[in-house]
């Protein structure tokens, strides 16, 4: 295997007396999609925040393309559980937020909005959007800086099941087109196996890797495929083994 895009080494991360993460050594290849699952409080969101550079107090190091990541980087994007749009900015201004007030005129904004299926809503305000539309804007914003790695923290947990499936397919198509590497925290086992090349199952207290399950099925996948159901069962058993369910 070629040099990994992302190399995570977290020897320990503590909050006060509690050790949240311990002895984590993981890596991802460029273009890979990995789902991270585990019980609530197993530190998976904390790991995501460490990789993003939002959390800097930990023992270990993160390498992106062989270079140490010491803080926030243009190469790493983050999509939160909630859309977190700025309500006083239009959709276009939200997408191009990192480029400053003039960024909304960047031609990439219209292109990204078309990709997430929101062409024509550039001048709308967030209050005019549905929950699914707002999360699409958040995804467009996460991609605006063309990050090599996109981190997603339960990005579709707040939308209804049908919208979720649409957004999952949209995310896969966009990631493929842009060659973006995705690391996704989710509570949804179906989502984990449908999207990912690998599923990392985390044990808790302290959080650590318990199983690394490959989903060796080519994209695009059929949601009702037998092989996918087998992977789903594997993840389920791994979660049972760590008493997450």
């Amino acid at each position: 295997m070629s040099a990994p895009l992302l190399d995570i080494e977290v020897r320990a991360k503590t909050f006060g007396a509690a050790t949240v993460l311990q002895n984590i050594a993981l890596s991802m290849a460029a273009g890979e999609i990995v789902s991270l699952v585990g019980a609530s409080g197993c530190g998976k969101s904390t790991l995501l925040r460490i990789v993003a550079g939002l959390e800097t107090q930990y023992q270990g190091r993160i390498l992106l393309g062989g270079q140490p990541l010491t803080g926030l980087s243009r190469d790493v994007g983050f999509i939160f559980q909630e859309p977190r749009l700025f309500p006083w900015l239009t959709v276009a201004q939200n997408v191009a937020f990192s480029a400053g007030p003039q960024g909304a005129f960047d031609p990439r904004v219209a292109q990204l909005l078309a990709e997430v299926g929101l062409a024509g809503l550039a001048d709308a305000l967030p209050k005019q959007l549905s929950g699914g539309q707002a999360q699409r804007v958040a995804i467009a914003r996460g991609l605006f800086d063309q990050p090599r790695l996109l981190l997603l923290d339960e990005p579709f947990s707040a939308v209804d099941a049908f919208t979720r499936m649409h957004l999952q397919d949209m995310l896969l198509a966009i990631a493929q087109r842009h060659g973006t590497t995705l690391l996704l925290v989710t509570h949804d086992i179906d989502e984990a196996v449908y999207l990912a090349d690998r599923v990392w199952v985390f044990d808790s207290k302290p959080g650590r890797l318990s199983a690394d399950i490959a989903v060796s099925l080519p994209q695009p996948r059929q949601r009702d495929a037998q092989a996918l159901a087998q992977c789903r069962a594997d993840v389920l058993h791994a979660l049972q083994a760590v008493h997450a369910i």
């Binding site: 939002l54 926030l72 243009r74 939160f80 909630e82 977190r84 700025f86 937020f97 990192s98």
Partner: peptide, 19 residues
């Protein structure tokens, strides 16, 4: 949460206050 989004966009303290 909005401040965190601004941090991800690497805003300077002044830009954070203004924008």
């Amino acid at each position: 949460k909005l401040v965190e989004v601004a941090r991800m966009a690497r805003l300077s303290p002044l830009a954070l206050a203004r924008r």
